[in-house]
Amino acid sequence: MDIKLQQVSYAYAQGTPFEKRALFDVDFDIPSHTYQAIIGHTGSGKSTILQHFNALLRPTSGEVHIGDRLIVAGKKAKDLKAVRQKVGIVFQFPEHQLFEETVLKDIMFGPMNFGVSEEEAKARARQLVSLVGLPDNVLEKSPFDLSGGQMRRVAIAGVLAMDPEVIVLDEPTAGLDPRGQKEIMDMFYQLHQERHLTTILVTHSMEDAARYADNIVIMHEGKNVLSGTPRVIFKDVATLKNFRLEPPRIVRFQHKIEHMMGHPLSKVCLTEEELAAEIAQVLREERAES
């Protein structure tokens, strides 16, 4: 399911003395089955834009295409349920939204709201609990007796239970320990591939954007200012600086290596594994020459 934003502007508290514009003529396409990262400094409009992806916010001017639905400024959109089912948002600290007596009921709540039968919702909950890496016996526990990391996983299972085609992640690993961060990010990547999802990751982590995304969009002062593959985006350090961003640590380290060697490597490396392999390759070539 494609999502298209055309000339989208958004102002909070429009028509009041507190009016504050957050988006200015934003134009971009998110093609089906791609993994997009949206990065930008705090206050760049990332969180405002993500709420347009399932019509939680309507643009104050411009239009948003979500699959075959069109959301236009100034027109009340009816029956957005289908849109909300297809585009699942995992907000920051989603565990704050848990409320049911048991984990099972909490995960079933979303799908049953969208008309899924009780048996089907139960089946989904059972399957998802193991998918997000929790033991079966949590299903009958109160979500509030779980640890923070486990609660996060239950909340994520609740979004996945609606069987969305597009999944929007807003800083999904904030506050988790390093292993938890890696497990959650790897899980989303696996889901992205297995279920052919469209994934949109809103993040401060340049490392995650580099490792997982097909394409990166940079937001700056309410506008989308740059878009490209991670290798292209992270190549131009000067431009990133203008947007108050830094390349991932691995790219900064690559610059130090290049400085030491006196010549650049053949490509921008996006992960530690890639850089180690690239350095080994250069050394083999140098040895072969000498």
Binding site: P178, K182, R249, E273, A276, A280
Partner: peptide, 19 residues
């Protein structure tokens, strides 16, 4: 549940690559 510091992780990967 933690991670290795960046330089240590990269040292290990380089050695694995035969550097």
């Amino acid at each position: 549940g933690l991670d290795l510091p960046f330089a240590l992780k990269l040292s290990k990967l380089l050695q694995k690559e035969g550097v």
